[in-house]
Computed example of a mutant assay.
Amino acid sequence: MFTRLWPLVVVLAATTLAGCAGEPTWLPLGTDRATTLQRLGTPTSTYPLPGGGERLQYSRAPAGFAVNNVDVDASGKVFSIRQELYDGLFDSTIKPGEWRVEDVLRTYGRPFEISRVTSFDGDVWAWHYKSLNNRRLLYIYVDPTGVVDHYHTADELFRDMDSSR
């Protein structure tokens, strides 16, 4: 019986390991840049960091809920990995009045949507994220000069897609 299940076990194990290999948060600190790219693939964006380092950004946007930033120092070694779309980080990360569009992109990547509202003179950038498995939205308000004015979070509400009810 086990010999018939062995190929299935091998396929499941390989699939599981392959999935883990592409998960940035499983990458050990100190991994070199080349190995990082081999394991995670091409980042969705890259940004220079002070001191000659580089941020490799792996975003699951527009439909996903995670933005993982893998920071590599000037010697080419990973020194930080962080999933940015997390409620507990917003207050200490987002700097209204100081942050510019470049800071927002370097931290969160491209939003899934940029819109406007009548109560604010500027653009409202939005990202999906999850908090305790609840779908949420992060909104960052960018004024016409490109400076972050403020931000807020909200529940992501879904309309019933079946209009026949």
Rank of each mutant, 00 (worst) to 15 (best):
T118W: 13
L138Y: 06
P50S: 08
V104I: 14
Y86A: 14
A34Q: 10
K77L: 11
D87M: 12
R55S: 12
V104G: 01
V78Y: 12
D149G: 00
P62E: 08
K95F: 06
T36K: 00
T15G: 12
L17V: 13
H128Y: 15
H128V: 06
L29A: 08
L132R: 15
R106T: 11
P144W: 06
A74E: 13
T16P: 00
P24Y: 04
I114L: 05
G30R: 06
R165L: 10
L157H: 12
F2V: 06
F158T: 09
A34S: 09
S119G: 07
T15R: 05
P43L: 05
L27R: 05
A63I: 03
T107Y: 03
A18D: 11
T44C: 02
G22S: 11
V147M: 07
L56E: 02
C20E: 13
R39C: 05
T36F: 00
L138E: 03
E84T: 07
S115E: 11
W99P: 01
R33Q: 09
F79Y: 09
V78C: 10
L56K: 02
A34H: 03
T16H: 05
N134V: 11
G109L: 02
F2Y: 12
P144Y: 07
V10P: 04
D32C: 13
G52C: 09
E98A: 12
G53M: 02
N68M: 00
R82V: 14
E113Q: 15
S119Y: 13
P7H: 05
T31V: 08
H128P: 04
G97F: 09
T35Q: 00
N133S: 13
G88Q: 15
A154E: 13
T3M: 07
L37Y: 10
D123A: 15
E98F: 05
V104N: 03
W125L: 08
Y141V: 00
P28T: 11
G97S: 10
D73I: 05
G122E: 08
D73E: 03
E113A: 11
D103H: 14
A74R: 15
N133A: 14
F90R: 00
T3C: 07
Y47D: 04
G22N: 11
R135S: 14
T46G: 01
L85K: 01
I114S: 04
A61E: 10
T3G: 08
F158V: 06
D155Y: 08
